[in-house]
Design a protein around this nucleic acid. Structure first.
Length: 740
DNA sequence: AGCACGCCGACT
DNA sequence: GTCGGCGTGCTC
């Protein structure tokens, strides 16, 4: 009887494929890599079922090679990836590709780095070599413990020829040894000092009563060695990180391993440094800032069981850890946990599933939990723990909301900084304290329009206006990065009176500089941190007190404590509130709450000034009052009323086409087919997507809403299966974070 | 006629 | 994802 195994191949949208195991070849176990023929080429896949029944009606081919006798991916990780592939409708191949280390993805060669190692022979010849260089080399080796790299010998003036003679003479042995790439090499002491500030990371400090209560709950949950999910809703500065660190130490002491997920943020993942600083060599890190080589080496350290704790971003949820006792998802509300291209998985939600599959405690933490997690807590699916007070009894910042409609009425429409904000900054400058000024929009002017015909300057590829960047004297599309010089005439009516309106961080920086000429200013946004290391320099300057005012986008609201910052100003809090996105309010509330939480984390109490056109909007009011529950209640009422998540489950389907008609027509066809399926929900649309054209492609979208994802997925799956030629043009997003 | 390019379907 | 097949349309 022939043996068959089913294999996931790294091709998005392809199902499992079955191959024959040639006779005489040992059947590979689940999780092993195999080389299989696929069409006219060979690909590396992953065994999913070692002994599967051959499918009806397919002519099976033989697998070409078995790369692993033992599982390469732990079977638990295979199961997790298969679950994700199904839940997010990406198929098994795409999800398994995420779980693989970089080398085994695609054809790119990433492997262990080796270097030539020269060591004294185990059984040296009695007679010493004659050459002076050879003798000098042996002396040096003996002095340095018997072994050196060829590179080190070369630095001491001993070349390859000398080494070859020594090898030939049997005096030394030389071999290629694996040398691990260490992402923390050289980091010690240099960039870490500011991670330790803010009071959250001092191991000697005791816990507050509130912290101690939550910690006891967590320890008890961890010791139960069973799946549970605990949501820690703790205000900024309440010491959540210290709880994670202690809980991780506790779990590791009990012989189980820990996975910590952190958001992908532009400000180098500070949390990774914290865990490394506390636990040293027992930690591996996985994030996108690593080179492929570093990533590869870290992955294999984890795989070999050399580490007890992994810190990483989204994809680290698939890290090949055994004996998992704890998964921490820090800042669980962060949208960077959601992958925005296939497989469109959510790192937090996959983490919860992993905890369930492997019987681990899952801890989700945030000062502004996602609507999803809070709803899960309220429904009893998660336990909830609260930290309502800051450590060391530091007060929350006193917050003032400034109605910009009045400012405009009083001082004209060009005001960027209100009177109260200017005064607050002046007070900081006179006292030598630091200010953070946030505007969540980059560029100089957001719109260029023609005063004669009213047309705005738009991207030729995308249905958005181009943003003027004064420093480079160009206009740029923030979606496709198309850039061009500023035209002298209107493209529609050839009029010459082009006007700029709206403003971003670049203009804000110029205004702040003009208003406070003596102040030392830095700006942080995607345009200023493109150069690697630029961000680290700014952070160092801020920490060293060499910056008075830090201007920037939401990047400055995340990830770092600045103890000397005592003022936070938000220039236009409602940037983003006008977006056609059902999460607009949630995003605004989270951003404002987080950035206000940056003020007053040191000894001096903080102050925040929020400028807005909608001072009565609940997300702004609740953020100013640091009142999470008030926000949650109102937002939940909104979501329930309009049937948005988490009140219902949502799937977003975007169909692209060469013309608007093609996109709409094909979307309409899929809608009709989905409605005929076993849906148990509703289909809304299709409609042109809010960005109806991106990078030259037209887009239409529709939504599926319901309470049973399984039924919704099934109906959609069948609809797409009926139109296989659309596969490439259909993007399915289960549990979308952004529907823009 | 001969080929470059883009689209589409198949891939066990 | 990637290959091959096939149609369109352009050039020698």
């Amino acid at each position: 009887m022939e043996v068959c195994c089913s294999v996931a191949v790294p091709v998005p949208g392809l199902g499992l494929l079955t191959y024959r195991v040639p006779s005489g070849v040992t059947a590979p176990p689940k999780g092993a890599r195999v080389v299989v023929p696929l069409g006219g080429r060979k690909v590396t896949g992953c065994v999913v079922e070692p002994d599967s029944a051959p499918p009806a009606g397919a002519t099976l081919r033989d697998l070409v090679d078995v790369l692993d006798e033992e599982p390469f991916l732990p079977p638990a990780v295979v199961d997790l990836a298969l679950w994700a592939g199904e839940y997010y409708m990406s198929g098994p191949g795409g999800a398994l590709a995420v779980a693989m280390p970089p080398a085994s993805r695609r054809g790119r060669r990433t492997s262990f780095r080796t270097e030539r190692l020269v060591r004294l022979a185990a059984e040296p010849r009695a007679a010493p070599p004659r050459g002076a260089r050879q003798r000098a080399a042996l002396a040096l080796l003996a002095e340095r413990g018997g072994a050196l790299t060829a590179r080190a010998l070369a630095a001491a003036g001993i070349g390859g020829g000398t080494i070859r003679s020594l090898v030939d003479g049997g005096h030394v042995e030389s071999e290629d040894a694996v040398r691990e790439r260490d992402p923390f090499a050289g980091a010690e002491g240099s960039g870490e000092s500011h991670w330790a500030v803010g009071g959250e990371t001092d191991p000697a400090r005791g816990l507050t009563d509130e912290q101690a209560g939550v910690y006891a709950t967590l320890v008890q949950a961890a010791d139960a060695r069973a799946f549970r999910t605990v949501l820690i809703n703790g205000v900024t500065g309440s010491g959540k990180t210290e709880l994670y660190l202690r809980l991780a130490a506790h779990v590791m002491a009990a012989g189980r391993r820990v996975l910590v997920l952190v958001p992908e943020i532009a400000l180098t993942p500070a949390a990774a440094g914290l865990f490394h600083a506390r636990f040293g060599r027992r930690v591996a890190i996985q994030h996108s800032g690593l080179s492929d080589g570093e990533r590869h080496d870290q992955w294999h350290r984890i795989r070999r069981g050399e580490v007890n704790l992994v810190v990483g971003t989204r994809s680290a949820v698939f890290a090949p850890l055994d004996a998992l006792g704890l998964i921490v998802v820090d800042e669980e509300h962060e949208s960077s946990y959601k992958q925005e291209d296939a497989p469109r998985y959510h790192g937090r939600d996959v983490a919860v599933m992993r905890g369930r599959m492997q019987g681990a405690l899952v801890v989700l933490g945030s000062a502004t939990p996602s609507m999803e997690s809070s709803a899960n807590a309220r429904a009893g699916r998660y336990e909830e723990a609260r930290l309502r007070r800051r450590v060391l009894d530091r007060p929350m910042a006193a917050t003032r909301v400034v109605d910009m409609r009045r400012e405009y009425a009083a001082h004209g429409p060009d005001v960027t900084l209100s009177r109260p904000l200017v005064e607050a900054i002046e007070a900081r400058l006179s006292r030598g304290e630091q200010s953070l000024v946030l505007l969540n929009r980059r560029g100089f002017a957001t719109v260029i329009f023609c005063r004669e015909c009213g047309a705005t300057l738009e991207c030729p590829n995308c249905s958005v206006t181009l943003t003027f960047h004064r420093a480079v004297r160009r206009v740029r599309c923030h979606y496709c990065n198309y850039a061009t010089g500023v035209p002298a005439r209107c493209g529609k009516c050839r009029g010459v009176f082009l006007e700029q309106s709206g403003f971003g961080t670049e203009r804000l920086e110029a205004d702040v500089r003009a208003r406070f000429p003596g102040a030392r200013l830095a700006r942080v946004d995607r345009d200023t941190i493109r150069r690697r290391g630029a961000i680290a320099r700014v952070l160092r300057d801020v920490a060293a007190g060499a910056i008075d005012i830090l201007v920037g986008t939401q990047m400055i609201a995340k990830g770092h404590d600045f103890p000397a910052v005592t003022l936070v100003g938000v220039v236009l809090a409602d940037v983003g509130l006008g977006l056609a996105d059902f999460r607009a309010s949630e995003r605004t509330f989270q951003l404002l709450t987080q950035v206000v939480g940056r003020a007053g984390r040191g000894e001096i109490p903080g102050e925040a000034v929020i400028q807005t056109l909608y001072p009565d909007h609940y997300s702004i009011r609740a953020a100013a009052a640091q009142d999470y529950d008030a926000f949650f209640e109102q937002e939940m009422a909104f979501r329930a009323g309009l049937e948005y998540p988490p009140a219902v489950a949502l799937i977003n389907v975007v169909v692209t086409g060469r013309t608007a008609d093609q996109a709409m027509g094909d979307a309409a066809d899929l809608v009709a087919r989905t409605r005929r399926g076993p849906l148990r929900g509703r289909v809304i649309g299709p409609a042109p997507a809010p960005l109806s054209k991106i990078k030259g492609e037209y887009r239409a979208q529709f939504f599926i809403k319901g309470r049973e994802r399984r039924a919704m997925r099934l109906a959609l799956e069948r609809a797409v299966a009926d139109r296989p030629e659309l596969r490439r043009r259909v993007a399915i997003d289960v549990d979308p974070i952004s529907v823009l």
